[in-house]
């Protein structure tokens, strides 16, 4: 069964979408890497988007996810491009 999860966009990802969030389809058994691929398509799939995605991580409020972490339920995630605090 396919559901949608909301992904919060940060940093340069905000340039690829009109809003600060985007809905991405999720099927049972999808891992973080698959969700990232679906996010890339949802953001237009340009070379620029895919290049940024390859350097970015999905995260929850508490932790940065591994590519093989299974996303099992509909919940909010965030996509984090390379960071530049300080």
């Amino acid at each position: 069964m396919s559901v949608f999860i909301k992904i919060n966009l940060f940093g340069a990802f905000r340039d690829f979408n009109a809003g600060s969030t985007i809905a991405v389809g999720l099927k049972t058994g999808d891992d973080a890497q698959t969700v990232k691929a679906n996010l890339g398509k949802a953001l237009g799939g340009s070379d620029k988007v895919m290049a940024l995605l390859s350097k970015s991580r999905l995260a929850t409020d508490e932790t940065v996810l591994l590519d093989h972490d299974i996303i099992t339920e509909s919940r909010e995630l965030a996509i984090l491009p390379p960071v530049a605090g300080g």
């Binding site: 940060f10 940093g11 340069a12 940065v64 984090l80 960071v83 530049a84 605090g85």
Partner: peptide
């Protein structure tokens, strides 16, 4: 830290700065 910065330049342009790729936990 998940923080990003966009620089605003005198010529009117703005750009997100390059940062450090997050390591996976």
């Amino acid at each position: 830290a998940p923080i990003w910065k966009m620089e605003h330049y005198v010529d009117g342009d703005s750009e997100w700065t390059e940062g450090c790729e997050l390591c996976q936990d």
